[in-house]
Amino acid sequence: MKDSKVSVLVGEDVVTVKREGSNRAVMAKVLGKVSVDGVEVVCLDRLVHESHEQQFGEWTLAGAVTTLLSRPLAMPIAVTA
Rank of each mutant, 00 (worst) to 15 (best):
residue 52 H to A: 14
residue 64 A to K: 14
residue 19 R to M: 04
residue 78 A to F: 01
residue 59 W to L: 11
residue 61 L to T: 07
residue 15 V to K: 04
residue 27 M to V: 13
residue 49 H to M: 14
residue 71 R to I: 08
residue 39 V to H: 04
residue 40 E to S: 11
residue 11 G to M: 05
residue 35 S to H: 02
residue 9 L to G: 08
residue 79 V to M: 06
residue 38 G to V: 11
residue 26 V to G: 03
residue 48 V to W: 03
residue 11 G to P: 08
residue 7 S to W: 00
residue 29 K to S: 09
residue 52 H to K: 13
residue 57 G to C: 10
residue 81 A to G: 03
residue 65 V to R: 12
residue 47 L to I: 11
residue 81 A to M: 04
residue 63 G to C: 13
residue 51 S to K: 05
residue 39 V to S: 03
residue 67 T to N: 04
residue 79 V to W: 05
residue 1 M to I: 01
residue 33 K to S: 06
residue 54 Q to M: 13
residue 12 E to C: 02
residue 19 R to S: 06
residue 40 E to T: 13
residue 77 I to E: 10
residue 12 E to F: 02
residue 24 R to D: 02
residue 11 G to E: 12
residue 16 T to H: 10
residue 7 S to L: 01
residue 65 V to Y: 06
residue 17 V to N: 07
residue 75 M to L: 12
residue 81 A to N: 06
residue 81 A to F: 00
residue 29 K to R: 10
residue 36 V to F: 05
residue 57 G to F: 09
residue 62 A to G: 13
residue 37 D to P: 00
residue 12 E to I: 08
residue 65 V to N: 07
residue 8 V to W: 08
residue 31 L to Q: 12
residue 3 D to T: 09
residue 60 T to I: 09
residue 35 S to V: 15
residue 73 L to T: 14
residue 20 E to T: 00
residue 24 R to Y: 02
residue 5 K to I: 03
residue 49 H to G: 15
residue 10 V to W: 03
residue 78 A to K: 10
residue 16 T to Y: 08
residue 17 V to W: 04
residue 32 G to R: 07
residue 81 A to E: 08
residue 31 L to W: 00
residue 35 S to E: 14
residue 8 V to D: 07
residue 5 K to L: 05
